[in-house]
C-alpha cells in the first residue's frame, strides 16, 4: 500500500485500518475525531454567524475525510478534503461574502414551535437510527478492504476498474450532470442589461431633470458641529440633509458633553 501513497504518515494512517477488529490507533482516532466532528457539526448549526458555521463545517468535513482514509479509502478521503473542504466550502465562503449583508441570523424564531419541534424530531430520529443500527449490527466484524484493494493493485486502480467498467454509464451521466449544472449556474447568475446603455447626453439630461440636484451631494459634517460620518450636513437654509450620510449609518445627535469645547488650544484636555 505504501507504493500508492509514498508518504510514511499515510502508511501509518492506513495501517490503522486493520481487517478485523479496530486497532487501538483507530479507536483513539475515532473517539478524538468523532467527538470533534460531531461537536463542530452541532456548533455549525448553533453558530449565529454564517461564516463561523462554514468554518465549523470545514472542520467536520476534514474529520470525515480522515475517517475515510482510516477506513482504507485514501482516494475518497483525499477527494473529500480537496473537493469538499477545499473547493465546495470555499465556494460557500465566497457566496457568503457576496451575500454578506445578513451574515447573522436573529435569534427570534419566526415560526412558532419550529425550533423545539425540529430539535425534538432530530433527536428522535437520531435515537431511532442510532439505536436501530447499533441493535441491528451489534458488534459485527468488518471484512476489510485488503483483498478488494489488492485485486487491481491498490485502492485507486480498484476504484478506477469499477468506475470504468460496472459504473461507466453512471459516470458518463454524472459528466452530463456537471455540464448541466455549470450551464444552469451561468444562466442563473447572468444579469441581463435592460435596454441600451445610457449615452453621456442622456445622463446629463437626467442630472438636470426636475427633482434632481445637479450639484454634488454635500459631504457629511459640512457646516455641522462635528465632522463625524454620522453627522448630517447642514444646508444653507439650516435644514439637515439626509442625502449627505450613508443610509447604513445611524444618524447621531450630539450630547452636551460631545459639543463641549475640548480646550485643544490650551492643551489642558484633562483638567
Amino acid at each position: 500500500m505504501t507504493h500508492v501513497l509514498a508518504h510514511p504518515l499515510a502508511g501509518q494512517v492506513l495501517a490503522l485500518a486493520s481487517p478485523g477488529a479496530m486497532g487501538t490507533g483507530e479507536k483513539v482516532a475515532f473517539w478524538v475525531l468523532g467527538i470533534i466532528a460531531l461537536g463542530c457539526a452541532i456548533a455549525m448549526v448553533a453558530a449565529r454567524n454564517a461564516m463561523h458555521s462554514a468554518l465549523f463545517l470545514v472542520v467536520t468535513m476534514f474529520c470525515l475525510g480522515i475517517f475515510y482514509i482510516i477506513q482504507a479509502g485514501p482516494f475518497i478521503g483525499m477527494a473529500q478534503i480537496i473537493v469538499y473542504t477545499g473547493a465546495i466550502m470555499m465556494l460557500f465562503l465566497f457566496v457568503l461574502m457576496l451575500v454578506g449583508r445578513d451574515v447573522s441570523d436573529s435569534l427570534i424564531e419566526t415560526l412558532r414551535g419550529q425550533r423545539t419541534a425540529g430539535i425534538l424530531v432530530g433527536l428522535g430520529l437520531a435515537g431511532l437510527l442510532g439505536g436501530g443500527i447499533a441493535r441491528a449490527l451489534g458488534s459485527i466484524d468488518a471484512k476489510g478492504l485488503e483483498q478488494a484493494n489488492a485485486t487491481h493493485g491498490g485502492n485507486v486502480p480498484g476504484l478506477a476498474a469499477l468506475m470504468f467498467t460496472r459504473y461507466v454509464f453512471a459516470f458518463e451521466v454524472t459528466s452530463a450532470l456537471l455540464i448541466t449544472a455549470a450551464v444552469g449556474a451561468m444562466i442563473l447568475a447572468h444579469v441581463q442589461r435592460n435596454g441600451e446603455k445610457k449615452t453621456q447626453k442622456e445622463q446629463s439630461r437626467e442630472r438636470f431633470a426636475e427633482g434632481n440636484h445637479p450639484a454634488p451631494k454635500a459631504g457629511p459634517g459640512v457646516f455641522a458641529h462635528s465632522n463625524s460620518v454620522a453627522t448630517p450636513a447642514i444646508l444653507p437654509d439650516g435644514t439637515r440633509s439626509a442625502r449627505s450620510i450613508s443610509p447604513l449609518v445611524e444618524p447621531r445627535e450630539l450630547t452636551a458633553e460631545d459639543t463641549r469645547p475640548k480646550d485643544t488650544l490650551t492643551g489642558g484636555g484633562n483638567q
Binding site: A37, A41, M44, R115, A117, G118, I119, G122, L125, A126
Partner: peptide, 12 residues
C-alpha cells in the same frame, strides 16, 4: 448522529 444534526440545521 451527523445526519440528524444536519437535519435539525435545515429545520431551524
Amino acid at each position: 448522529a451527523l445526519f440528524c444534526v444536519g437535519a435539525v440545521g435545515v429545520l431551524i
